[in-house]
Amino acid sequence: MNTEVLKGGFGNAPVDAAYAFRAAMNAMACPGTVEVLQGAQPPAPVSVAAGTLLLTLCDPDTPLHLAGDFDCEDVRAWVSFHIGAPVVAAEFSMFALGSWEALAPLSRFAIGTPEYPDRSATLIVEQEVLAQEGMALRGPGIKDSVTMSLPETEAFQMNAMLFPLGLDFFFTSGDQVSALPRTTKVEVA
């Protein structure tokens, strides 16, 4: 039996998850800020931050989509043991994990309904680095404007136009996380 899969979960789930959620919530409430997210040791290619996010937010109630390289035996086994989320196609997912290229096209994901805009997918986008430079962000949670590096501009502008429907994004790299909800207006700085 491969015992590697048993490793990498939270050491003290209630406390680790509480700190992780606070970082995730601060990131979502204040787009463009970078928070530290630690606790999980997921198998490659999943980053510490993305693994921690999955442990904090996902469970058997949340269908999960693994995109591209992230849909591999190791990750599936780790998700199955530690989280129990059903791994599904993009169309049926509440959460999705992958690189920006692998997650495209975004039109596959649920954007919610006019009556229930919360029934939309949350995408966890793995990036090489999270840099606070590049696009200018404005909107709720941002005092004036902040800058943040994003994989592209147009997709997020299109997403914001769907408001109150739309997708919400977490960006992860190593043990860092930042977020971009559907309310944020993205412009080329």
Partner: peptide
């Protein structure tokens, strides 16, 4: 923990859609 995860997901969607009541 499962209850907290459910509430936490609702809080995140609430922050993403300010003013909308998440069930």
């Amino acid at each position: 923990e499962q209850t907290k995860r459910m509430i936490r997901r609702a809080i995140l969607k609430g922050l993403a859609i300010p003013g909308y009541q998440v069930p």
